[in-house]
Design a binder for these strands. Structure first.
Lengths: 296, 296
DNA sequence: TCCATCAAATTGTCCAAGACATTCCGGTTG
DNA sequence: CAACCGGAATGTCTTGGACAATTTGATGGA
């Protein structure tokens, strides 16, 4: 595998790959006939594992020298340190369906869950913890890419259909939803949209990866009252803070900015004029208080 | 704007940006206090235009020296050279809604169109030409990013809901849909899924950007009969051919590979054992002939 | 007129080692 | 216990050269 392929595969820039090799001695690629780096399959695997661990707070210098086995141990350690919630029966059942690739069963079961307990509880009690569980499996490398894709796609279908079925009462506030560039995770967005629609808010989603300037254009053109941004755990905190600052500067003060998703971002001090939605249930309070503030 | 930001914004690699500067004298960024490149807004704009023209076959060396105005003239020339179809009234109406940011009206109108003429004709007669028109506007730089996002999101909502409403008759063949890495355009996939579902095929979508190896895993785990890949016009032909070859090698011969979307890819000779779907209507024939071949 | 072949020009990617701004960690002080 | 600070850690950017891969354009032949 060439350095370009590894860059695409791991998300580590060519510069980073070369500098790691220089500094840490890993990766340690061979060379082809033209003197260019050739990465063995196993090293790419290890790089992926390292990237996953870094996304969860580990430092490269500390973990670079570890063996694959030690890295895996580290992954599981993280899992144990986290809130070791005993999985509910339902959750375990859904997880099993994902890992057994039973797409239709999964979709049917999830769809029934929405009908049985309502969309709100579905999102907070099922989807959110399921996402965490899937994230942990992913961190451990215990999940194939296509399994994650199957899961994401299934959930997307169920959520979108549920959102479409919420009786529309096009009332204030108007919310524009999207993510910053480099944030490709759209499930959080859909979950937020579901919660917002349930509160009777008027939602317009731009999908993922909208440049800051286009968020501004979109918000004004849609007369949005609130711009809602979703961040995944992996999103670099610095980039998030920078983007939020710029957005706050560019947006009229009348328009609120809500940031939710990964808790990492919310740990840092957000720019003034940006509201942190620490949980999905915070959306309920958020909308309620917005309506109080705008009662006139 | 730093070189990293320009890379993200334009899709041109840092290496390419530096080598263009060295060879063509453009871009011609200033330097900040640390000696690092700072690209003025206007140059980034021009870079985007150049990138768009390159995606449509122009060579960098030829167009790099042209002024913004000359580039725009070139864009429109391409438009005129193309099949200059007079837009139907409906199409013009939808285009206007997009450019006027009337999201709700657009969605309602599209939804009605589905009901009135059926999903099949909706996809072939409305969505496909609308995509072309939007693509041309985009090429001319006459469309903001957020407008394109609004359009994509709206169409996604309408298509997904329509697909979900097709009465399910889970029959053969089983089709796995996805795109290769770096192909983020998902509308083509949804259009294909719509056509396939109408033919009574059993569809499982992996969403976008699935690595080849995971396509293989997904296809086998879902017992797929056909793997359907979607390509946009911009997708590099070489990458498509490479990916398709590798996929063909890795997949049991029993499983067919169908490639559709951008006509660029289909111009080149595809690897043996890969079927080109030159148009959406070809899907109908494709499924019919598959059923004939597998009549036993 | 059309197609094949081949050299030349074009173009993107890769390499090397160094520099430095920024972030993070650990220890000290208030 | 919080705030501060120095040093280590880390990713990104720099330069200029090299070269494989693709495209172009001209030539020759069917």
């Amino acid at each position: 595998m060439g350095i370009g392929a590894v860059e695409r595969d791991t998300g580590l820039s060519k510069d980073t790959l070369r500098v790691w090799e220089r500094r840490y001695g890993f990766p340690n690629p061979g060379r082809d006939a033209f003197g260019e780096r050739v990465y063995p399959r196993e090293q790419v695997e290890k790089l992926r594992t390292i990237k996953r661990l870094m996304d969860h707070g580990h430092r490269p210098g500390k973990i670079m020298q570890l063996s694959i086995d030690e890295l895996k141990a580290l992954s599981q350690e993280g899992e144990n340190a986290g809130s070791r919630v005993e999985l509910s029966d339902d959750l375990a059942r859904y997880l099993h369906m994902v890992r057994a690739h039973q797409v239709e069963e999964l979709r049917r079961a999830l769809g029934q869950e929405v009908v049985r307990n309502g969309l709100g509880r579905f999102v907070t009690d099922i989807v959110a913890p399921l996402n965490v569980a899937i994230g942990e499996l992913w961190l451990q490398g215990a999940l194939e890419v296509f399994e994650e894709h199957l899961y994401t796609e299934s959930l997307q279908v169920v959520l979108r259909s549920a959102i479409a079925n919420v009786p529309q009462s096009p009332s204030a506030p108007r919310v524009l939803l999207t993510t910053f560039p480099n944030e490709q995770h759209g499930l959080g967005l859909l979950m937020a949209e579901a919660m917002l629609v349930l509160e009777g808010a008027h939602c317009v989603s731009l999908g993922i990866e909208t440049p800051v300037w286009d968020i501004v254009l979109g918000a004004t053109s849609q007369s949005a009252d609130i711009v809602a941004l979703s961040f995944s755990l992996a999103y670099p905190a610095a980039q998030a803070v920078d983007g939020l600052s710029e957005l706050r500067r560019s947006l009229p003060p009348r328009i609120e900015i809500w940031a939710g998703g990964g808790t990492e971002v919310l740990g840092r001090r957000l720019p003034d004029g940006v509201r942190a939605m620490n949980s999905l249930s915070a959306i309920h309070e958020g909308i309620k208080s917005w309506r109080v503030r705008h009662a006139s």
